[in-house]
Amino acid sequence: MDDGGSVSETTTLGEKIARFRALRGLSLRATAASAGVSSSFLSQVENDLANPSVASLRRIAAALGVSPAVLLESKTGHTRGVLRAVDRAQHPLAGAVKYVISEPPLRNLEIYSGTFEPNGSTGDVPYAHGDSQEFLIVVSGTITLRLGDEDYVMHRNDSIEYLSSTPHRIRNESEAPAEVLWITSPPTERITTRTTTRTREQMQET
Rank of each mutant, 00 (worst) to 15 (best):
P126D: 01
H155Y: 12
D124M: 06
I160T: 11
T166N: 05
D149Y: 09
V125I: 12
P167R: 02
H129I: 05
H129E: 05
L145Y: 00
H168L: 06
Y162T: 14
T122W: 01
D131M: 06
V139G: 06
Y127Q: 08
F135R: 02
V138W: 01
L163E: 06
D131V: 14
S164M: 02
G120T: 06
L163S: 09
L147C: 13
G130V: 07
S159H: 15
G148V: 15
F135L: 14
S140V: 07
L136W: 01
Y127W: 11
I143E: 00
L163G: 13
D124F: 10
G141A: 15
R146A: 14
G120R: 00
V138M: 03
G130A: 09
G141C: 10
D149S: 10
P126H: 03
G141D: 05
L145A: 04
Y152A: 07
E134M: 03
D151Y: 13
D158M: 03
L145G: 00
I160M: 03
V138C: 04
S132Q: 07
D149F: 13
Q133S: 11
R146K: 13
V125F: 08
T142Q: 10
R156T: 15
S165P: 06
D158A: 14
L136M: 14
G120Y: 00
S140K: 06
V153S: 12
D149M: 11
G120H: 04
I143V: 15
I143L: 10
P126V: 01
T122Y: 02
S121H: 04
L163Q: 06
D124S: 08
I143P: 00
S164P: 05
S165A: 11
V125L: 12
V125N: 07
Q133F: 15
G120Q: 01
S121I: 08
I137L: 09
R169C: 11
L145K: 01
R169F: 02
P167H: 07
R156Q: 13
S164G: 10
T142V: 14
E161H: 09
R146P: 01
G123L: 02
T144D: 12
G148K: 08
L145R: 00
R156E: 13
G130Q: 07
R169T: 04
H129G: 03
F135W: 13
V125Y: 07
L163P: 03
D149I: 12
M154H: 07
T122A: 05
E134D: 05
S121L: 05
D131L: 10
H129D: 04
R169Q: 13
H155L: 14
D131I: 15
V138Y: 01
Y152K: 09
S165Q: 07
E134W: 00
H168T: 05
G123M: 04
V139M: 10
V138G: 00
G141V: 04
V153K: 09
S164I: 03
Y127C: 07
G123F: 04
H155N: 12
Y162V: 14
V125S: 05
T144W: 08
D149N: 09
Y152I: 13
R146S: 14
S140P: 03
G148D: 10
Y127V: 11
H168E: 04
Y152N: 09
L136K: 02
G130C: 08
Y162H: 14
S140A: 11
V153Q: 10
V139E: 11
T122H: 03
E161D: 08
Y152T: 04
R146N: 12
T122V: 10
T122P: 01
G120D: 03
D131E: 12
P126S: 09
Y152M: 11
I137Q: 05
V125P: 00
